[in-house]
Design a protein around this nucleic acid. Structure first.
Lengths: 359, 359
DNA sequence: CTGTTAGCGCGTTCAA
DNA sequence: TTGAACGCGCTAACAG
């Protein structure tokens, strides 16, 4: 692996000084066309490419961007990355991938690393956005866009889904079907985002119809299939007068459907089920499940554009971009939770889901 | 964003020379415990982190790794990345993501960029492995592991699936069920890898049973749903004496099933269908479809381990790692090809698939 | 055990 | 229009 040609090599061969070469290659003005052409030709010939480290060191700058995410083994992150990458590529940024496994400490380490690399900006997502995340981001001082978290909106730039609004729309969809006895299976209420948001949207929709939530028809889950199954069981133990269910995520919606079916309900003629977040997780779709489809790729694109504007120092009209979702009916699907699912996302409690499925 | 503390800052404050500080921080031997502690304390206090560029420049070295892949918006690459990332993280490498969109020119640019960053190694996958890819990789001279392509095995390190062997096993599965009139829907035969490989495995299995391939029961597709559908139609136009179908990928298997159903076949009582590459694409699973499940995450892990050994200069026993697949039955699934699918992988001819699906 | 010196490849003064 | 000289932050070779 012979080393790359350097400015010096070109300078020697072109019989000019290094600084002249440097000027030519950085398109600085004040160079005669003759030497410019000559230098350019030789650079080409020598396959010159600037040493990124030397450049970074001298300019105290780079075109590196960090993408800090908890994981990449599922479609949500694949699509997010896709969106980020598309736009980043257009602007000529290089992406450094930082996978945290939801470990905030790890995330902070990555931030240091990015600082060491003079990263020009970063896109950040973590399971929860804790004080530590906030402090870390603020200390490192790199322009950042946070994705889809409950954050102090005045301190960070962010791209989020309109959780409340869309949750409300989803609920209204059920209400428009004529249903009035709605059950709600929520995420952990301890989770401000999106757990509480989706719950809030649900309640708002009810309020809009002059209804209020019936505690008997509410149960809390933890986003897993199993918890959805159990939550539905819990509700059914209290009342069977239910004509629709809104689950705060697809997994729980499917768990709920399983519970409903085993309780003798027919879906959808007896009951309608709707799930939030239609990330096409593949195994996660189910018959007659209506879901809010989230524009994940767009989140990535939007975040990246926002970041670019930040870096350019241009005006960013609002600190928060709110993306809408889309209601989708998935009629021709059945549930599958085989070992493949463990495969999709090994680090989640898949065993549980499967157990519940089979049980 | 105040700048980071440098060696000089520490040196001044600790009243030692920069090189002493450097030695302490790089754990070089021959430093008194007293100064070591003092320097360390001050480094901590100043939140010192080495400037990666300066380090890279001085050492002519980095801990950057390139991952060159055609795309990331689907599960295959998400899982590949996941596997790579897991192992890379353990070894402390930083991953730079290079998405080529199957553009070899783009890929070569990325190689230059990686060279500029003194990348220590790279993992490479492209749709086809052309002479240009080969030349590019050889010229750049960075330790590389190529994934899942037909390559000159003596010149590159690679991780591949045992396409021939597994294709043979899949076929034998059908033969063991007692089927003898097997149809084969292949990938483009112009595609050496894995198109020809999977075809070869099929023929080998037949040969093992003293059978040979019937040209009437063979048709070529291009990996898409639609092509599978059409290929099956073509075959059915020639003969309806078919008791099993082996399609070289899941999409085509599903297309074939659709054609079979519209031709009056019942699956699986009349006929068995098997598809290769059980990447859980989500929408791609189907009733009674048996597939070879590919250990994608393991490809990533294996490639990364191999690369690490290469970088370390250690002995790499074989230049090629061949991974086995696993036969899986996906019984409880139905096909779904809604707009969500376009979402999963926007850059593929989804319109066609959907059209075929609905038609 | 520690300090001095030189240089990695490039950008950016300041002179000429 | 060009060249010489310096410094970015760090490592490494050589002294002491």
């Amino acid at each position: 692996m012979r080393d790359l040609a350097t400015l010096k090599d070109i300078a020697r061969k072109a019989r000019v000084s290094e600084s002249t070469v440097s000027r030519v290659l950085s398109n600085s003005p004040g160079i005669s066309d003759a030497t410019r052409q000559r230098v350019l030709a030789i650079a080409q010939e020598l396959k010159y490419h600037p040493n990124a480290f030397a450049q970074g060191l001298a300019k105290a700058d780079s075109n590196i961007l960090g993408v800090v995410i908890p994981r990449i083994s599922n479609l949500y992150y694949a699509q997010l990355l896709q969106g980020i990458q598309e736009v980043a590529g257009d602007y000529g940024y290089n992406l450094v991938l930082c996978v945290t496994n939801n470990d905030t400490h790890q995330a902070l380490e990555y931030l240091q690393m990015l600082k060491a690399y003079q990263a020009r900006g970063l896109i950040y997502q973590n399971a929860f956005f804790l004080d530590e995340d906030q402090k870390g981001l603020e200390e490192v001082g790199i322009p950042a866009v946070v994705i889809s978290r409950k954050i102090p909106e005045d301190r960070f730039y962010s791209v989020v889904l309109d959780e409340v609004g869309e949750s409300r729309r989803a609920t209204e969809y059920l209400l428009n079907l004529g249903h009035r006895n709605l059950a709600f299976i929520g995420g952990p209420l301890a989770d401000p985002w999106p757990g509480q948001m989706r719950f809030l949207g649900f309640k708002k929709a009810l309020a809009g119809y002059g209804l209020e939530m019936d505690p008997d028809r509410f149960a809390e889950g933890d986003w897993t299939f199993k918890s959805g199954f159990l939550a539905m069981k819990t509700i059914l133990a209290r009342t069977r007068e239910i004509d629709a269910v809104f689950a705060a995520c697809d997994e729980m919606a499917i768990g709920a459907m399983k519970a409903l079916q085993s309780a003798g309900f027919t879906i959808p003629s007896d009951i309608s089920v709707i799930g939030f977040d239609g990330v096409p997780l593949g195994v996660m779709c189910s018959p007659e499940l209506t879901t809010m489809e989230q524009p994940i790729v767009d989140i990535g694109r939007t975040a990246m554009r926002m970041l670019h504007r930040l870096i350019q120092g241009g005006e960013v009209t609002s600190r928060q971009s709110i993306l809408p979702c889309r209601l989708v009916e998935r009629e021709s699907c059945r549930v599958r939770l085989t070992s493949s699912h463990a495969y999709i996302d090994e680090r989640e409690a898949v065993g549980e889901k499967r157990g519940a499925m089979e049980g």
